[in-house]
Amino acid sequence: MSYAYLFKYIIIGDTGVGKSCLLLQFTDKRFQPVHDLTIGVEFGARMITIDNKPIKLQIWDTAGQESFRSITRSYYRGAAGALLVYDITRRETFNHLASWLEDARQHANANMTVMLIGNKCDLAHRRAVSTEEGEQFAKENGLIFMEASAKTAQNVEEAFISTAGTIYKKIQDGVFDVSNESYGIKVGYGGTAGPSGGRDGAPAQGGACCS
C-alpha cells in the first residue's frame, strides 16, 4: 500500500503500563488482556490519513524492564515520534518518566515528537496519579499529553494520530530534512520532501511499499 510518508514511532515506559495493549488497540482495534510479555521489541503498523495524505505509522513496541534499557536505546535511532506511557494506577511508573525521557532525549534525534500517555484511565477508582500531575509534567517537558485507555480505546486513536499531526506539521514547517532518514521519516509517493525538497523538485526517495 502506498504512502506519502512513513513515520517511525517508538513506545516506551515501564513494564506493564500497557504499551503492547495500546499498540494492539491502535492497529487491530481490540483489547487483549492476555498476551505474552514483550522481549526485545515487537512491531505494528497502520495507515492513517492526515491532510488527505496517506501516512504509514511503523510502531516499535519495546520491552519495559530496566535491564533491557541498554538494548532499547538502540531502537531510538531514527524515530520520529515516541509514546511515553505510564500507568495512572501505579505511581512508580509516573515517577520513572524523567529517566525515560532523558533516555529518549539522549538517544533519539532532537526533533522527535514525544506524546505522554497516562494509560488505564478506565480504572479511575484506582487512580494514583492525577490528571493535573500528568499535565504538569508534560508542560514542564514540552510534551503532548493525553490520558487514554487501551481497554476502552478511549483516546488511543487520538494519541497516535495527534502525534502524527505534529510530525506532519513539522515537515510542513521545514523542521526536518526528510531526505535524511535519521529523522524517522520516509517519503513515499505523493509526499514531498518538505519545502526545500519540493522547490528543488528532487524525486521522493524511499519505497512506497516498505513494510
Partner: peptide, 13 residues
C-alpha cells in the same frame, strides 16, 4: 509485582 505481572503474560495460549 513484576513476577505477578509476567506469569500471567507467559504462554497463556
Amino acid at each position: 509485582g513484576l513476577i505477578e505481572k509476567d506469569v500471567v503474560r507467559t504462554d497463556r495460549s
